[in-house]
Amino acid sequence: MCSVILRSSDGADHVVSQEAASLSKTVQSLLEELEAAKDGEESILIVPLPNVCDCTLRKVLQYCIQHTMSAQQVTEGPTPSDELKKREMEAWDRDYIMVSTDELYHLVMAAHYLNVPGLLELCCEGIANLIRGKSPEHVRQCFGLVKDFEAPEEESIRCTNLWALVDEKEQAKK
């Protein structure tokens, strides 16, 4: 499998196998376009990614390379240890997503732009885990967010959501 170069928004080049790069559907379609345009030349393809900085691209590629390697191991033939490998990958994913909120934000935006379905899913699950069980006020406080609601609008939302803001155990008793 040949290599390609992915160029981040800040001009850093990352050489990666085409297979790993193609986990991104955006990159895959860009590669197809470049392939069609290169007219038989044997030069290495360079894919510019203006929306992803070097640091985030490095992290995205870490995911793509790991998952490509894992998929290769599985496709070489089903073995009784496939389930074990799957569990190992899940554990790897859990470690991988243990990042700061800021990093998670950049990662989810990159996964969305690059269209890497597995990574997007993983990031969204990470965000869900961060906000689960917290009230909007609590989430805003933790994340340093600013409301974009007017006061009457917020009051109307609070009233509509009141049923879910009551303590879970109290609700269950009712």
């Binding site: 965000i127 869900a128 906000i131 917290k134 009230s135 909007p136 974009d148 879910a164």
Partner: peptide, 22 residues
Amino acid sequence: VWRNVASHMDLWDWVRASGLCK
């Protein structure tokens, strides 16, 4: 992306988070 985040949550948790922004 928010829709994907919500799909990882129980409705009750999502309702509580839904008041975050428009």
